[in-house]
Every structure is written in C-alpha cells, then in structure tokens.
Amino acid sequence: MTWLVWRQHRNQAYIAAAALALFAVVMLITGRQMASQYHSALISCAATHTCSDLATTLNLGSPVLFLLINLTLLVPCLLGVFWGGPLVARELETGTAQFAWTQSISRSRWLAIKVGWAMLAAAAWGGAVSALVTWWSSPVNALQHQNFRAGQFDVQGIVPVSYALFAVALGIAAGAVLRRTVPALATTIGVFVALRVVIASYVRPHYMTAVTKTYRLAFAHPMPSIPGSYWQVSRGIVGPGGQAASSAAHSGVGVSINGTLVTLPPACNSLLSQDPPKIFSCLAAHGYRAFITYQPANRYWAFQGIEAGIFALLAAALVAVSVIVVLRRDA
C-alpha cells in the first residue's frame, strides 16, 4: 500500500522536494550574509556605544526576502490543497476507490496508510520550511524584538507544522465528505484562511492573561522598559481609581493623548491653551496613570505550544471525520 501511495504521489513529492531545496539554498545563502552583517554591526556599535539605536539604524534583509518569508504563510494551505484535498476525493471521483477497495485490503488500512503518509509528509515539509525560516530570522528577531508579530509568529517555531497537519487533514475530510476534488479544494482554502484569521486575531491574545503595568504619566511619555520580544496587547491612560480616562466624571474638555480619549479634570482645562505639555503632570497629579498590557517575551513558546496544540487537535478531529465518512458511506 505504501508503494501505491508513493507511486501515486511521487511526482508531487519530487516537485515539493525541488521547491524545498531551492528555498533552502536561498535561505542559507542570504541567512549567512544577514547573520554576518548583524554581527559586524554589533561589533562596530559596541565600539561607538550606539547599540541601543541599532534597531533603527541597521537594515537587515531585503523587501524581496521578507516577501518570500511572508509567502511561507501559504505553505500549509498549499499542502492542504495539493496533498490533502485530492487524497480521497480524486479516488472517489474517478472511481479508482472501487478498484482499491476490491483488492484484498480493508478500507480502514487503505485510508490509514494514505492519511498517515500525507500527514507525515506535510509535517516534514512544513517543519523543514519553518526551521529554515526560524533560523534565517534569528538576527531579525534579535534586532527587532517582534517575534509575536503576525507574519513572524505564524511562520516560525512549531506552529507551521501544526498548520500543515491541520490543512492536510482539512483537505482530506473535505474530499471525503464532498467526494469531488474542486469543491474540496475550495472548501479547504476557505475554511483554513477563515479559521487562521479568527484564531490569530480573536483567540491568540487570550491564551494567557495579559500582564498590565501602570506607570506615571509624563510629557515624553516614557515607557517602563519591558525585556525582550513582548507582545503589546493594548496601551493607554486610566483615570483615578482605575476608571476609564474618558469617563464623564468631569464634564471637561476631551483631548486625545497617545490615542486615548481623556476628559480633562476642570483644574487642567486651562493648561490646554496656556502650556499643553504641563497637562501630563496635571493629569498625573489628579491620579491619572499610563498603562501597558502585554504578553511577556518568555511566554513565546507557551503561545507557540498552545496554538500548535489547538490546530493539532482540530487536525485529529478532521482525520476522525474522514475515517468515519469513508468507512460508513457506500463507495
């Protein structure tokens, strides 16, 4: 059966291997250049004590390379479309399932081996791409501290493996249920993109309760230093006693400070025309404080693990659906 799976999909495997090899060459060459560029920049900035500005002065990579990195977001979806979708659907559509299912092999074994290899290949391929991107990005991560940002979190670490497993399982299940290749592919793309967007935007920020730090309002609005690649969830100003800064407690003038609408206490009103910078100290004196809510940098792998777990569970559920549908339904 393994031989049949290989014979059916070897062309796809060759194409995928060639694409991966090409991608690896680009990543390895440019990654090495970028790493040495970063290290020499570190040495020269240490000499001039300007390393704190390095994030703004040093330009790593090129727009084309970052586009390529962003394109790896599509890898799981492509695997779902080219490997997952047709796996069962094409056999049902062309009738070859009837050929396979009347050889001396049980349907469950046929499905298990097909699904097993497809998932294994997806995990290996998704993992290889992710490993290359993660390694390539290490100077960028060290420089920019934006590991949590969408477009970086989603293409590095272990989550791409889980996305690939999910996408392939989704393709297989859609094919088993719909029994036709093209609708299965369309469903795979639609559901995958929708679910990824929903989870990344609405679920991911809540995997763990965010940490809130409040600090004194001042004109230059300096932030307390937070180490590493933390993930800022929100930032703003709170009124006295934690109430909203725009609360109607004062029927004063509303001003927007760093994106937060603040209703000025009457005492601070006059400063608006006389000496605007002093509004900060006036607000601080009236109990207003600045805050930042964030996920600390050391939660990065916990977040990767939680997200990878969610998609792996969804993948397992979809495989179960495929098994039930293939075994229960008539050929």
């Binding site: 299912w101 009347t102 049980s106």
Partner: peptide
C-alpha cells in the same frame, strides 16, 4: 470490506476505473 472476504471476489466497475 476486509481482506478475507475481498480475496474471494473480483469486481469490475462499469467505468473500468
């Protein structure tokens, strides 16, 4: 759909898949 049963039969579908 198990090997013992399937080994005894030969099936050829109409569309010769």
């Amino acid at each position: 759909p198990d090997p013992a049963f399937l080994a005894g039969i030969g099936f050829l579908a109409q569309e010769i898949p």
